[in-house]
Amino acid sequence: MFTDDIRKQVDTALDAVRAHSLVRAAADGLLPLENAIRWVFCAGRESRSFPWILQDLLRWTENEKIRRILQENLDDELGSGDPSHAHFLHYLHLLDDLGVPRQEFNDYQERAGIKLALQLAFNIARGCNTGRSIGYMLVNEAMTPVTYTAAKQALTKYHPALGTNFFDLHIEVDDHHVAALYEAVDALPEADRADLWYGIALGQRGMEILLDEAYGIFDSVDQDINITAERWNPLSATATQDN
């Protein structure tokens, strides 16, 4: 079975995320608080959306093992019947502990990174491709200990008494989800190998561009760029110069 190859592919994706400048700076205690808070905002957008992504996956997934894994994941996200333990509520408590007004989170203007990351996630969830979906979910869940451990290090440098339930809960629960997803990989046919790899690559890409946004890469140009506009036409530019 090709599960060992998939594990290696996921590990390669995790190494790439560990090497991201924002994650390295956080782990080394060098990340400015402003970037750490923006990282929290981006993670919050993802946390708020994740139950809807799982629901989209459940709408078309027919494999009973995979449906069970997705449903368990969704139940965990929603607090397993107790709304007070919903993951996003823990996120809101994290904002409170950081002294960040919830309105500031609501008012945060998403840039290209989080927009693309969420568009990728929702398109995969609605794409009706089992291999890509499992590959994406695998790397997305497996990255939690990498990114959230680094986020904890970055934030507790500035807030030593910070409660970290949001991070700790995700790290603990996602370890279980990853193990269950590898069971799903074991049940997939060889024909799904390429789609699994592609899903892993998409999950890595989505996380990296989210981290890019938190690191400030998209701060200089934050308006939508319409590349079909006349000013982007090189022939038009040449004609203007000639005149």
Rank of each mutant, 00 (worst) to 15 (best):
F2I: 05
D5Q: 07
I6F: 01
K8S: 05
D11Q: 05
D11E: 12
A13H: 13
A16M: 11
R18V: 09
S21C: 07
L22H: 08
L22G: 04
L22S: 09
R24P: 07
A25Y: 10
P32V: 06
A36F: 09
R38D: 13
C42S: 15
G44C: 11
R48G: 12
S49W: 08
I66L: 12
I69Q: 08
L70I: 11
N73H: 09
N73T: 01
G81M: 02
G81T: 07
L92D: 00
L98K: 00
L98F: 00
F105L: 05
K115P: 12
A117F: 15
A117V: 14
A121S: 13
N123Q: 12
C128I: 02
N129K: 04
T130W: 02
S133H: 01
S133T: 09
M137R: 13
L138T: 03
Y148S: 07
A151W: 00
Q153E: 12
L162Y: 02
N165Q: 14
V173N: 05
D174F: 11
H176I: 13
H177I: 08
H177P: 05
L181N: 13
D186S: 12
A194N: 13
L196Y: 04
W197L: 15
I200A: 12
L211S: 11
D212G: 02
D212R: 04
E213I: 15
I217R: 08
F218G: 08
S220E: 11
D222V: 09
Q223N: 13
N226P: 11
N233P: 05
P234T: 03
A237T: 04
T238Q: 09
T238H: 10
A239Y: 00
D242H: 06
D242P: 02
N243C: 01
